[in-house]
Design a protein around this nucleic acid. Sequence first.
DNA 1: CAATAAATCGAACGTTCGTTCGTTTTGATC
DNA 2: GATCAAAACGAACGAACGTTCGATTTATTG
Lengths: 231, 231
Amino acid sequence: MNYSEFQKVIQYYRKSNAKEAITENRKEIRVKKEKTVAKNLQRIFEATLKIGNKKGFQAMSMRDLSDETGLSMGALYAYFASKENLLVMLQRNGRDNFQKILEDCIDEAATPLENLHKLIRTHVYFSEAMQPWFYFTYMEGKNLKKMERKIAVDHELHSDNILSTVLTKGEQEGAFKKLPHQLTAALIKSLLNDWYLKRWKYAKMDVSVDDFAKYVIDFVESHCLVKKSGN
Amino acid sequence: MNYSEFQKVIQYYRKSNAKEAITENRKEIRVKKEKTVAKNLQRIFEATLKIGNKKGFQAMSMRDLSDETGLSMGALYAYFASKENLLVMLQRNGRDNFQKILEDCIDEAATPLENLHKLIRTHVYFSEAMQPWFYFTYMEGKNLKKMERKIAVDHELHSDNILSTVLTKGEQEGAFKKLPHQLTAALIKSLLNDWYLKRWKYAKMDVSVDDFAKYVIDFVESHCLVKKSGN
DNA sequence: CAATAAATCGAACGTTCGTTCGTTTTGATC
DNA sequence: GATCAAAACGAACGAACGTTCGATTTATTG
């Protein structure tokens, strides 16, 4: 799999982008027609990511958002209860998509090594496709209120666990070395995160998303793989 | 070297913490007595890091800072020209310290492998000692104005170059593999950054700063080192 | 202990913020 | 095209913001 193949696969996720955010927050949204909500909420999310990634969510004013979306202040508040609530909706929506993608990635039939490859590639490719959301969520995570931040942390630990589970399974099958897999998983994650956190750097180096995924795989394999001694 | 040894080494840097920030901004600081400036600026820096890392620099009000430092609003403005200027001073001061530490780390006499070890350990240990500043600077970097952000980016690329230079030197001496060293350096940096960005995770895993440094070194060596075939 | 300088204080200023709500526009129904 | 609900509008509100500055306290000097 490479990135252009991946893009086709995820068309489905892109289209249903705000759907879950709607059903989950239906009571707080004052607009009735589903189609109108979907269109405008999508517009609001994109504008928030655009402005938020430039100057930070706190520094984004509702007037900024009004200008960017073309909706009036009053209209905006028909789609969310407060600025804080907008932040929560936006983060939740993306997290749910990401979690679903990652879990679809676990393939019991595949070997642990194949599964590790697929997890790495999917992470890199999905964060490439949704870069604004990933960057935004990483940077604004600490601005969430206690309860919502706990959920965010749980999601992060869950995705760490998906990785470490594969590593453990690989160790049992003799493909991977015996290592502290939880720690390894955390370090792999930090490599993967760098793709959307330091995108400018990789652009400058002329490293493509496919190059990056391949190199991270090599890097991780060097460390985890049991080398077959001259067979 | 381990962390407790490192702590002794950097006592010097800790004490001269705000000294450079003072000389560089002397004209903007209205307070005359050097000793008063040093004491209060240090207090202001620490308070800014504390509040800023909790709620973000933008969301920190001057009233918050006044409460935390015990200085009045008017007194605060005797030490910096504006909120924006405080951000710049704080970032510059830390960057200068970090750069100095890193450059003291380059040891022409040592082997590239020894030098790599020293760079990794120093990075991890220094970011442990100055965690609030590192976290703050990573998160608030994008809020800098154009010119100041360019300086920050240049510093980041410079520290990448220090790493890749050592890797290249090691390759020439036959100790390290032939690899895209710039890319490798970027990935190593992302591992190192994770120590102060995701500190809560490593605390939860009960990984000490020494454990972490050792494991990163192992991870990097697995990838970069030329394996001596059964000698 | 005056006299002078240095440092601190905190009320006040003009903006800008998030949010509201009475009004206007749009779109569907008969 | 009249009627009515849905959606969008944008001026207005009080709160909170960064910043200033004349008054006050603290420290230094002769």
